[in-house]
């Protein structure tokens, strides 16, 4: 019995390794990072580089609060189109790398080869991990690159609330952390963005169980995301729109408890659908 469990564990580990390799060593993962880098990179050229010229101006003590990484990088540039665009298309970028792999494998018949070697639950579990991680990385990595490049160009001047040049206000989530330990704030926000991006890519994977066209599965999370933003945008609950609370500049002020609850709910929904899919006996091609 122990040997059987051990074998299962080994198979599961092996499956996870295989799926992770397929998800990350994949030209589509590269393309999705490239899309993100194009947007984040353009912000460097249109905003960060011009801001570099103003750094010396402030060093000469001309008044006003100096320019800082924390109000220059893409995540704080709510006045630029790049931040808005990035968070509009975030679900699509997260689904691009690997969300439709289940669909492709089912359609091509490849799934039959896998399921004769490992059980369906192990397959779905390893697939979910790969989809989640690749989706999260595809969204977060360009933001990290943008932050890093901005750090190389602009000094990390600690934010000052009274200067009114920073996007976080008193009522915003983690405002205390932002004005004392801004990098901790940014890391925390990257974790939130990564988690949600992974969740969206899982939704994409789940939708691929029910659609007949893989391109549709790539945009279903985007459709839901945009609709939620649209509906909530015209109500008093607009701050609960993911398109707003995922932005590090918090244009509407985020609520941490809601972010966690919504995320856990999302994971539960994914779990339910994966459980249902795992219960299926027939491989219907």
């Amino acid at each position: 019995m122990n040997l059987k469990l051990l074998k299962l564990d080994n198979k599961m580990n092996q499956m996870i390794r295989i799926e992770l390799k397929r998800a990350f060593c994949n030209v589509r993962f590269l393309y999705s990072i490239l899309v993100g880098l194009l947007i984040a990179g353009s912000q460097i050229f249109t905003w960060v580089i011009p801001a570099m010229e103003k750094v010396e101006y402030y060093l000469l003590g001309k008044g006003e609060y100096p320019i800082s990484v924390f109000n220059t990088w893409i995540g704080a540039s709510g006045h630029t189109y790049q931040l808005t665009l990035y968070f509009i298309i975030l679900p699509v970028i997260s689904c691009l790398p690997f969300s439709d792999s289940c669909f492709i494998e089912r359609e091509s018949g490849y799934q039959a080869h896998i399921l004769t070697r490992v059980n369906r639950n192990a397959y779905l579990f390893s697939k979910s991990i790969a989809v989640y991680l690749s989706g999260g990385c595809a969204v977060v990595l360009p933001l990290i690159v943008n932050l890093y490049v901005t750090m190389m160009a602009i000094p990390s001047v600690i934010p000052e609330a009274s200067s009114r040049t920073f996007p976080i206000f008193e009522h915003s989530m983690w405002s205390g952390i932002f004005y004392t330990h801004p990098y901790v704030y940014l890391v925390g926000y990257f974790v939130i963005i990564f988690s949600y991006a992974g969740l969206f890519s899982l939704f994409g994977m789940i939708s691929s169980f029910y659609v007949r066209n893989r391109f549709v599965s790539l945009v279903i999370p985007f459709i839901v995301y945009t609709l939620v933003n649209f509906v909530l945008g015209y109500t008093e609950y607009y701050k609960y729109s993911p398109e707003l609370f995922l932005r590090p500049d918090q244009p509407a002020g985020a609520v941490f408890s809601f972010i966690v609850i919504f995320y856990i709910l999302g994971l539960l929904i994914c779990r339910i659908f994966l459980f249902r899919e795992g219960k299926k006996y027939d491989l219907y091609v």
Binding site: S77, G78, H79, T84, I88, T226, F230
Partner: peptide, 19 residues
Amino acid sequence: TPVPGQQFEVPILWMIVQV
């Protein structure tokens, strides 16, 4: 006109039609 501190927002209703 981009001004730091002023949010750039795409009009949501118009955008949904395009999407």
